[in-house]
Simulated scan of single mutants.
Amino acid sequence: MRTLNEMEINGPIETVFDYARRIDLWPERLEHYRKVRVLEGDLETRGVVEMAAHRQFERMNWPVWWISTMEVDREAGRIRYRHIRGVTKGMEVEWRLVQDGPSRTHVSIIHEWKQPPIGRRMAGGFIGHVFVHHIADQTLAGLKLATESRLEAAVNG
């Protein structure tokens, strides 16, 4: 299973990277995140993190959670996760941030799950598209709104 989500965010890469890296603030910034806890390490270089969100359907929110290792490579503009607990155990996630103009950043999130324990068809079709891709789209849209709002307030403020 492989999913790709991409978005352009108006802001310098340093600012956008910090919004992506500071997952501890996601529950405040992103309405679909329920909690994020750093279990070991830190958010500057590497750690183990617990994340919980919900996938919004028409009339209900389906809770999801996972525990991941997290590696931050600021110079390369990369943040990597490996899910080590939860339904998506073994999933590899990479955030790639690239400066795209003087004040715009291209962000992509790639999820790869080579050996899902619950079957490739269910993982790719249902979990991949219905849950992973949708939640990643919400995350990018929320980070775009939070980052651009903050930058606009700083300019006008």
Rank of each mutant, 00 (worst) to 15 (best):
F57A: 14
P116F: 03
W66H: 07
T3V: 13
D18Y: 05
A53S: 15
V48I: 15
N61S: 14
V38E: 09
P63G: 14
G41I: 09
T105M: 10
A123S: 07
F57L: 12
K89P: 03
W95R: 00
S68F: 04
A53D: 11
V38H: 02
L43G: 05
I9P: 00
V93C: 01
M60I: 11
P63W: 11
E71C: 03
D100A: 12
E92M: 11
E44K: 12
R29S: 01
T15P: 03
R29G: 00
I79A: 01
L4Y: 02
R104M: 12
I135K: 05
Q99D: 10
H111Y: 09
A153V: 07
R96M: 02
M91Y: 09
G90D: 15
R37K: 15
S149A: 11
T147K: 00
H133A: 14
S108I: 00
V93G: 06
A146E: 11
L39G: 09
R59P: 01
I118T: 07
L145V: 07
A20N: 02
L25I: 00
I79E: 00
R55L: 15
S149G: 11
I127P: 01
G119T: 04
M7L: 07
G119D: 11
Y19P: 00
K89T: 13
R104S: 10
K144H: 13
P117C: 10
T15Y: 03
H83L: 12
K89M: 10
E148V: 05
G77L: 07
